[in-house]
Design a protein around this nucleic acid. Sequence first.
DNA 1: TCCCAATGAA
Length: 608
Amino acid sequence: MVCTETYILSRTQFLSLSNNIPPKNTDLNVRFYEHGWLPLLKRCKSMEEFKQVHAHILKLGLFWDHFCGSNLVATCALAKWGSMEYACSIFRRIEEPSSFEYNTMIRGNVNCMNLEEALILYVEMLKKGIEPDNFTYPFVFKACSLLGALKEGMQIYSHVFKAGLEGDLFLQNSLISMYGKCGAIEHARDVFDKMSERSVASWSAIIGAHASAEMWHECLKLFNDMMHDGRYRPEESTLVSVLSACTHLGSPNLGSSVHGILLRNTTELNVIVKTSLIDMYAKCGCIEKGLCVFHSMAEKNKHSYTVMISGLAVHGCGSEALRIFAEMLEQGLAPDDVVYVGVLSACTHAGLVNEGLEFFNRMQFEHKIEPTIQHYGCMVDLMGRAGMLREAYELIKSMPRKPNDVLWRSLLNACKVHHNLELGEIAAENIFMLNPHNPGDYLVLANMYARAQKWVDMAKIRTEMVRKGLVQTPGFSLVEVKRRVYKFVSHDKSQPHFHSIYAMIHQMEWQLKFEGYIPDTSQVLLDVDEEEKRQRLKYHSQKLAIAFALIHTSEGSPIRIFRNLRMCNDCHTYTKFISMIYEREITVRDRNLFHHFKDGACSCKDYW
DNA sequence: TCCCAATGAA
């Protein structure tokens, strides 16, 4: 019971409430509402305050008012400070609970991730003969979607028809989300297509469904359809899915326009939206814009720090990433395994070897995080980069879990860079045992043999590739010029103005030679003479893309290139020279990191 | 007279 000396709500407030009794009206409903209990309940800011109000209500005998009980349950179950246990104890004292109380309890349980409990309550409802209504199903479907319980969800959908609620807009929207989350995209699509009436939420749900299915182009298409319809104003949740599509498609221009739509449609962007923006900018190569959004955030959480740190990591900004990690710790946010992947890879890409080794220890012993296979991968990269190949090999062997092919591939790559054929062979053998279908691995090994002039071994590997029917994935480079994306493959002559591009290449080469560039033919695996090898190198897709961009963009503007494969040594050196000669910043996104070429140097410090 | 749907990281 309430103790009059310690209550939190003002004394006069309580006195005035107590003075209002007995009520003028004997009707209980009027009594509960007339005396201002509802606003008082809504004003509760903590469990303490709530318990006091609850105590007063009990003392005054108001609890038996039907609406009083349901409002108590609703407040306690749904407030941030609430308690499901306490709400349940109140709920169980209501003699004849209606669908309203059940809905509230189901919703509360879904919010605290007691998903089975939510479904049990739904079943209990059915057993007691209380009819679920249009409010019940959205919560129940949400529980199913969080459980990934597609079958159960579909079964429950059949109840909807019995209740004649299949036309309800909210219900259909939740159904789309459930299908989306459970990976039943065609079902989601089917519901969406058959809707007689839609809201923004319907669009958000269907766009989100395609985002979780990683159908990025479809996401953008749907968003476009929605905007063209003209009746809907996009919401933050809609745009988060669209941003995700921009991120995965690597389109900073699209992403920026979504940013613009956000700013035009909402006053203050929430944490989730801002986090998605940072991630989008970082992954699209615009790390400065990502930092800008990050610094503009009043409220940051674990996710925000994680995307910022791993964003900086792939851009080779290691020390900046570590500074932000320190800030995260200062804020009292506990680091988890994901943020440590970012921290360790930041150390790797910036060549901060000692720091990386130290963080690997701190993670385990100070923050008690078991290293996952990703962490080991970062460490192998880190040691490999520093030339500590033996140590990396020992680390892999000492792992408590079975190493995967990705890990061995890191070692193989390190061996390639440091020309250690002996360990390279071991790494390759392990890769071939775990995954014999990746042509790139065979090529790296063949390359290493070629470099060591072991032609017989090289030929063996090539034969092996042919025998397995493995063909090298064709490499391509994408470059965006005047809002259009152009794709180049090696020796490409499909562009309408390819003559001017080839002429540009000749001009560039003349200047490159003047500056001291020597073509590195060591990675050309053809049995041809040196001159032929040089000819092969000359028209690699990245070089064509750079030439094209140099012709068609204004002087001094940055060039952004995306490629599907790692670049060869020669393209790397070549691009460094070009960035100096033409005074351009060139950003190339590789399979796993960004290379920022500027003034003749690359942010990866020549390790990739 | 109270309760609906959606969103972020390796």
